[in-house]
Design a protein around this nucleic acid. Structure first.
Lengths: 193, 193
DNA sequence: TACTTTTGCTAACAAATGTTAGTATAAAAA
DNA sequence: TTTTTATACTAACATTTGTTAGCAAAAGTA
């Protein structure tokens, strides 16, 4: 079958791959399995992507950009430190809940990238974490957050955010907005009354 | 080479496998690669294990038991709800920091178990989470914890605990004990002053 | 000592892997 | 219309995969 007008094979491949990678893990998904779900032969992928890894690459870096873009918008024009943290947290959670499959791939399968993309990816992530670190540090310096090792606090925050993809249920009782609000509150106030 | 007295091949295999699985992920580690690190041929594994999966099985279920045993000891004779939560958290973190590689495998690679072990594993994990859920619920009922969906709170707590293996550095500036204390405090009190 | 068990080896297997070569045809551009 | 480009196909490739068969020798047991 030849080109079909009005539908983008490449986007479809990325979507299917994202879904399958999330479901089984990058290494456990074969090109032939992917092909079957897309509705083409495995060899036909190579008209759209250089390699299996380049599909992964696209998913990981697209998500990276998504996290950056969203948080930049969220933080613009907000000056109060605690509000900034809240916005950053909500932004992060929104990106995850809006891209559940891709988030899982982003968080798990990046390690199968080869150099130099692996280093590039890590650097990107480091920068993103830096946004949070800066807010936390500012809050501690101003005395509105408890003084603690800031790296520790940032890691702890990411830890609690980065499993959202694992248990957030789109049809469940919470909206992404509520999840964001609740997690922000838990992080800021703790669970003790 | 024949049997060598005084050293346990099976234990060595488990150890090497745990380390490699953690490093690269279960699916990305081949029997031949494992063999090279153990110092035997790939075929020789089958004198000690039925299959590659049975190595994974052993790691996952041994860790499961470890979590249960440790938390049971930690909770014995403690009656105050908030102290119980603190102890549960510290217990969980101690198991992770004492078994960094195995924890990563336990948390990531369990999904490559096949039935019926997959279901058995999930059930085990569900029971373990139930211990935390019960404490949280008790605390909410007594009014010492903020009222919230308890499943949500439990997931959030696990989320922040289960990434410890990813960033805890044995030689770093914090001991496992300090990590436990800090995380407990963050969960209970939040970061805001 | 003689016998059994354990643990290792080499060789090979069938299946699955990512990928390339060569070709055909529909869509797009000229 | 003719030409070019994009996208699909079939067939095959070289590796790598987990695993088995058959055999040898050390360790354990009698």
């Amino acid at each position: 079958m030849p080109k079909q007008a009005g539908f983008k094979r490449k986007a479809q491949i990325t979507k299917v791959a994202t879904n399958k990678f999330r479901e089984k893990g990058y290494r456990a998904v074969s090109m032939r399995e992917l092909a079957e779900h897309v509705g083409i032969e495995a060899a036909s992928f190579y008209n759209h992507f250089d390699s299996k890894e380049s599909i992964l690459k696209e998913i990981c870096f697209r998500m990276g950009n998504e996290f950056f873009n969203t948080i930049n918008i969220a933080l613009a024009e907000e000056k109060k430190t605690d509000k900034m943290l809240e916005r950053a947290i909500k932004s992060h959670i929104n990106v995850i809940t809006d891209n559940m499959d891709a988030s899982a791939v982003f968080l798990h399968d990046w390690r199968y990238l080869s150099e130099p993309y692996l280093s590039e990816f890590k650097e990107m992530r480091r920068k993103y974490e830096g946004i949070f670190r800066k807010i936390i540090k500012e809050g501690m310096d101003k005395g509105i957050f408890n003084k603690q090792d800031e790296t520790f606090t940032v890691l702890m925050i990411f830890s609690s955010l980065n499993w959202v993809y694992d248990w957030f249920d789109v049809k469940g009782k919470f909206t992404a907005e509520q999840i964001g609000t609740n997690i922000s509150k838990l992080i800021l106030e703790g669970i003790r009354k």
